[in-house]
Computed example of a mutant assay.
Amino acid sequence: MLSMGSVVMGAADVHRAAAFWMRALGYVPRDGDVEDDWTVLVPAEGRGTAVSLGLSETPVQEHPRVHLDLYATDQAAEVERLIALGAERVDWDLYGGDCYFVVLADTEGNRFCVIDKS
């Protein structure tokens, strides 16, 4: 049997990416420190899917095949909080009418969605 261990994302600056995701998700480095080329972040309170960040020189994909969906009970407040942490809005060309998600990019340009859970 398999279970989800970690979602891995590339970063040109692992420290900058780790700082963003630690503040965004309330995660901490699994091994106590963030390394220059690799780190695994885990929920501070224990259980949950880890986020791993690896040094990468690969360009960010405009329409990535894999991305994070973050669920929010107050989508507008979470989007503004994430922007204040360094995320940027993405001019997403695939929005439909009555869209329930907002596409943002982290400090490394990795796209992710904030889903309106309501």
Results as ranks from 00 to 15, higher is better:
Gly86Ala: 08
Val8Cys: 09
Ala105Glu: 07
Trp38Asn: 02
Phe101Thr: 13
Leu53Ser: 08
Asp36Val: 09
Val28Phe: 06
Phe101Lys: 01
Thr39Val: 15
Cys99Glu: 15
Arg16Val: 05
Pro29Tyr: 07
His63Trp: 05
Val66Ala: 12
His15Arg: 15
Asp37Tyr: 10
Phe112Ala: 07
Tyr100Ser: 10
Met22Ile: 09
Ile83Ser: 00
Phe20Arg: 09
Ser52Phe: 03
Ser52Leu: 04
Glu57Asn: 13
Ala18Arg: 09
Val42His: 03
Gly97Val: 13
Arg89Lys: 13
Ala105Pro: 02
Gly48Pro: 06
Glu35Phe: 09
Glu88Ile: 03
Asp98Leu: 09
Val51Ala: 08
Gln61Arg: 15
Cys113Val: 05
Met9Val: 15
Asp37Glu: 13
Ser3Arg: 15
Asp69Lys: 05
Val28Ser: 05
Met1Ile: 02
Ala50Leu: 04
Ala50Lys: 10
Glu62Ile: 01
Glu108Trp: 07
Ala11Ile: 07
Asp13Tyr: 10
Val90Met: 05
Val79Thr: 09
Ala19Cys: 01
Tyr100Gln: 13
Gly97Gln: 14
Glu78Gln: 14
Glu57Ser: 13
Leu104Glu: 02
Leu85Thr: 07
Val79Asn: 08
Ala17Gly: 13
Ala84Pro: 01
Thr49Gln: 12
Glu57Asp: 15
Asp36Ser: 15
Gly5Ile: 09
Glu57Pro: 00
Leu41Thr: 08
Gly5Met: 05
Ala19Glu: 15
Asp36Phe: 04
Gln61Cys: 05
Pro43Ile: 11
Thr107Met: 06
Ala17Glu: 07
Ser6His: 12
Val103Pro: 00
Gly97Ser: 14
Ala19Val: 04
Tyr95Phe: 09
Leu82Lys: 01
Val40Lys: 09
Val8Gly: 00
Phe20Asn: 07
Arg30Pro: 00
Asp37Arg: 12
Arg47Trp: 02
Thr39Asn: 01
Arg81Lys: 14
Val40Leu: 11
Ala50His: 12
Arg30Ser: 12
Ala24Thr: 09
Arg23Lys: 15
Glu62Asn: 03
Gly5Lys: 10
Arg23Leu: 12
Met1Phe: 03
Val114Phe: 04
Glu78Val: 08
Glu62Lys: 09
Val66Lys: 00
Glu45Trp: 01
Pro64Phe: 06
Glu62Tyr: 00
Val40Gln: 11
Ala11Glu: 03
Val42Ile: 14
Ala17Pro: 06
Met4Leu: 15
Thr107Ala: 02
Asp33Leu: 09
Val42Pro: 04
Thr49Ala: 14
Arg23Asn: 15
Ala87Lys: 03
Ala77His: 05
Ala24Ile: 11
Leu41Asp: 07
Ala77Val: 04
Arg65Ser: 12
Val103Leu: 04
Gly96Arg: 14
Asp74Tyr: 02
Ala19Arg: 14
Ala44Asn: 04
Ser6Ala: 14
Arg47Gly: 14
Ala87Glu: 04
Phe112Thr: 06
Met1Lys: 02
Ser3Leu: 11
Ile83Gln: 11
Ala72Met: 06
Met22Leu: 05
Gln61Ser: 14
Leu25Gln: 06
Val7Gly: 02
Glu35Ser: 13
Val66Gly: 02
Phe112Trp: 07
Val114Asp: 03
Asp31Ser: 11
Lys117Ser: 14
Asp91Tyr: 00
Gly48Leu: 06
Asp36Arg: 14
Glu80Pro: 00
Met4Arg: 01
